[in-house]
Design a protein around this nucleic acid. Sequence first.
DNA 1: CGGTTGACGTTACAACATTACATCGCAGAA
DNA 2: TTCTGCGATGTAATGTTGTAACGTCAACCG
Lengths: 152, 152
Amino acid sequence: MAVHNHHEHAGASLAHAAESALVNAGEQWTDMRADIFAVLATFEKPASAYDIADLVSQRRGKRVAPNSVYRILDLFVTTNLARRVESANAYLANSHPGCLHDCIFLICDSCGTATHIDDDTLTMNVRAAAEHAGFAEVRPVIEVRGKCADCG
Amino acid sequence: MAVHNHHEHAGASLAHAAESALVNAGEQWTDMRADIFAVLATFEKPASAYDIADLVSQRRGKRVAPNSVYRILDLFVTTNLARRVESANAYLANSHPGCLHDCIFLICDSCGTATHIDDDTLTMNVRAAAEHAGFAEVRPVIEVRGKCADCG
DNA sequence: CGGTTGACGTTACAACATTACATCGCAGAA
DNA sequence: TTCTGCGATGTAATGTTGTAACGTCAACCG
């Protein structure tokens, strides 16, 4: 298995890394974006846009519409600050923003928690297979549903 | 790339293969199921449950609720007659029912068509990585979004 | 005949996502 | 300073996807 070294951030360090990454991408780090990222980062499990909207609403003492959350989540996904988990219709903060590669998510059907593993050879093989079939600008979606060790 | 040989069915042959597979699984091949499978099989692109509900409604001259379609699609997925494309919230008929293995879907963001490739070594590697992380009863979801050769 | 079971119908609703347009604040041009 | 453009966010409405709860009906079995 290929090893990929990077910094795993958490808490304030993660927020700071996210801010840097977003600014480097030529985007603004606004209060709203900071709040949404902060809330997203508190989740262990993939969080739905509506979950986030609720918590951000509480935090701000004012209703934040799902709409606004989606806008910012989309931005986060395109700038690699967050990932969308397709099989869960939900999002996860990227614990190493700025570090660009394909992720493999393992989602437990029982407890819902997601862990992510990196295996660049594997993802490169997926990319290669898709490109071999004539695909371009490929975005692999590699997720595994199953039962995690704790729920076993 | 690993080669996997199997029969690709189409049309009546496919419907027949599906019927056999379902019956072998101890389930009934009803009119409703036949209609839903037939409609699903006409699609090139992943079909949403609502698309299918509309077409089946037409075909029967009577409204068929999405609800009923979901029930049967779920059955199809568990019996391997159809696949769910997670990143599209939609379904595809399995062109070789009865033949059980993990699929890799390539979905064109531009035209929406899905092609599927088989690469058992690749999917086995994904399974192995998940199991190595302590996961059990794994169901890999491997999809690639991108631009297909025709849309290039 | 009565009971059970599996398939499907019906209604209602929950969860997820997008569209269109309005507003606000700020930076640069006039 | 006033205007103007623009990016970010607000607001409302609506579209899409998915489930829950419960009713009906026909087939089968004792």
